[in-house]
Amino acid sequence: MDAPLTGTAAGVPFTALPPADGGAAPLIVTWHMLDAPRSDAAFAAALPMHGLPAWRVHLGMPMCGARMVDGSMDAGLELLRRDVLMSALYPFVRQAAEEFPAALASLRAQLPVGDGPIGVLGGSLGGAVTLRILADTDVPVLAGAVVNAAIRVRSVVALFPGDYPYDAESGRAADELDFVARAGALAGRAPLLVVSGEQDHAALRDDARDLVNAVGQGAELQSIPHLAHPLAEEPGIAPAPQLPQARAVDAALTAWFRHRLVDAA
């Protein structure tokens, strides 16, 4: 089993899993969920993708893991209560995407990953970060994948109590994070696997199907039986034993990235 390495990349905490020989290899970067597993270390334990000939580097999302305030999720939860979209979901995705180029450069300086195309992976809100990297940057990507992803942020907002009071600013933010509407920016960018739990929220499952249909060639949908939205048990901050449903996701991702790594070799 690959021993995890921890550190920071341009201020972003990470948990890295090396390839079997610990040497030079391509890079796969991930962003975790706000649901469990909600830290880079916990996401690495849930989806380690052991055996891949690649470095898997799991980045921490804002206000999570090592960036929690006073060691708890209370501050992040307060932002969700204050304004789920404009205080939490949108700025978290924006910050994670904006800090990525510097973090990537730092990872390249710290790890033997070279400067070739990378893989990108995100779960839930981390999926929105992954899709934003694909849609809004020119970082070379060999393959992408998302799991139970926040594909349309309006669908995520609707999961919270009450009717959200959209205005011009929040409407623009929601449009930025509607990747079905922005599928043209994803088409042809890189092969994309969209993993959807069969027991995930119905709206998120619909969005997964709509994204694959909208992107078209190069996008694939894979449903995982018995998988709800989380990939780990609560509290989901520390590494935990891999659940059977997460093992099925892990196997799908490992096969997906292995195939693309072989094609790129």
Rank of each mutant, 00 (worst) to 15 (best):
G119A: 06
G123F: 10
F179D: 12
A174E: 02
A105I: 01
Q110H: 08
V93H: 05
D83E: 06
G188M: 04
R182C: 03
L125P: 01
V139W: 01
S124W: 03
R182Y: 06
A149H: 11
V84S: 04
D167F: 08
R81G: 13
L125H: 02
D167E: 15
L177Q: 05
P62I: 10
A88I: 11
G114D: 00
R182N: 09
V147G: 05
L125Y: 07
N148G: 15
L142F: 04
Y166W: 14
A181P: 05
V84R: 14
E98H: 12
F92C: 05
S72D: 11
L107S: 06
R56G: 02
P140C: 13
L107I: 09
G126P: 03
E99C: 01
S106D: 09
R182S: 14
E169F: 08
G60S: 12
D83V: 07
Q110N: 03
G60N: 13
G119H: 09
F92N: 10
S106E: 01
A149W: 08
L142P: 00
C64N: 15
W55P: 01
A102T: 14
G127L: 05
A173N: 05
T137F: 03
S170G: 09
S87H: 15
L59H: 06
M86E: 15
R81Q: 14
F179M: 11
F100L: 12
G71H: 01
L111K: 06
V147E: 05
A97I: 08
M61D: 02
E78D: 13
